[in-house]
């Protein structure tokens, strides 16, 4: 295959300055957007304008602003399950320091570690609903496009916090549903740890980070295939 740089330059060589619309059209569009934003802010109740400005700008422009995205801390629910030190046997392929209070390492399959409530009704370690699933991510899992993905610092590495899709359309599309599991993709050594955390735990980002910081690959874990 030839140089990718050359291929890309060749592909867009026909796009020239003379083919662009008049800059005044972009200005008119931008000024209209700025005017609309000012009008919306004018109707925010006094005292909330400063806090709401960032939110309104975000929602009006349909997403991130192009500026660095700061990790969004979710509200901590009083029903969130706390972490406690794990004192059981360490599973092969992983080390784990903490588990949710009242939870245990339920099982280890060839590719993943399952953490579930003690005495859970479903004791099958190959079924993951309502449980924490930790695995060594395969190549597809590492490169997949994720919903609501954003960076999140876990220890001294930058992980990807995202939401698993739980609703699928007949046309093949997907999106997160109301009780979708949280996902975390964390670089670890020469691999990646993939966490699936059920919404029942009601964990905020800080708790997820504290949990993930205590999990590591030992070199024996095998990525799931397919």
């Amino acid at each position: 295959m030839p140089d990718l740089r050359d291929l890309m330059n060749e592909a867009v060589a026909d796009i020239t300055t003379t083919g662009q619309p008049a800059p005044e059209l972009d200005l008119a569009r931008a000024r209209k957007a700025a005017r609309t934003r000012r009008n919306r802010l004018a109707f925010v109740p006094a005292g909330l304008a400063a806090a709401a400005a960032g939110v309104l700008a975000f929602s009006m422009l349909g997403g991130s602003s192009g500026e660095p995205a700061a990790p969004q801390a979710t509200a901590t629910s009083t029903a969130a399950i706390a972490l406690v030190s794990y004192t059981g046997d360490q599973p092969v392929g992983f080390t784990i320091d903490r588990v949710p209070d009242g939870w245990e390492v339920q099982g280890l399959t060839v590719t993943s570690l399952v953490v579930a409530p003690v005495g859970a009704k479903n004791q099958d370690a190959n079924e993951f609903e309502g449980k924490i699933l930790i695995s060594k991510a395969n190549e597809l899992e590492v490169s997949s496009d994720r919903s609501e993905a954003r960076p999140l610092k876990v220890g001294d590495v930058e992980a990807t916090r995202f939401t698993y899709d739980s609703e699928w359309s007949e046309e093949g599309g997907s999106r997160p549903g109301p009780d979708a599991s949280a996902g975390l993709l964390v670089p670890d050594g020469d691999g990646f740890l993939l966490f699936q955390i059920p919404s029942e735990l009601k964990w905020d980002d800080a708790t997820m980070v504290a949990f993930a910081e205590g999990v590591h690959l030992t070199g024996d874990a095998v990525p799931a295939q397919g």
Binding site: G62, G63, S64, S65, G66, E67, D145, S147, E148, A149, D165, S169, E171, G172, G173, S174, R175
Partner: peptide, 22 residues
């Protein structure tokens, strides 16, 4: 870099529309 980042984010937001098609 600011402008390019804004463009990339616009692309990712576009891909994040409600139904992500296969």
């Amino acid at each position: 870099g600011y402008a390019r980042r804004s463009l990339v984010n616009a692309l990712i937001d576009e891909k994040r529309r409600p139904w992500r098609r296969e």
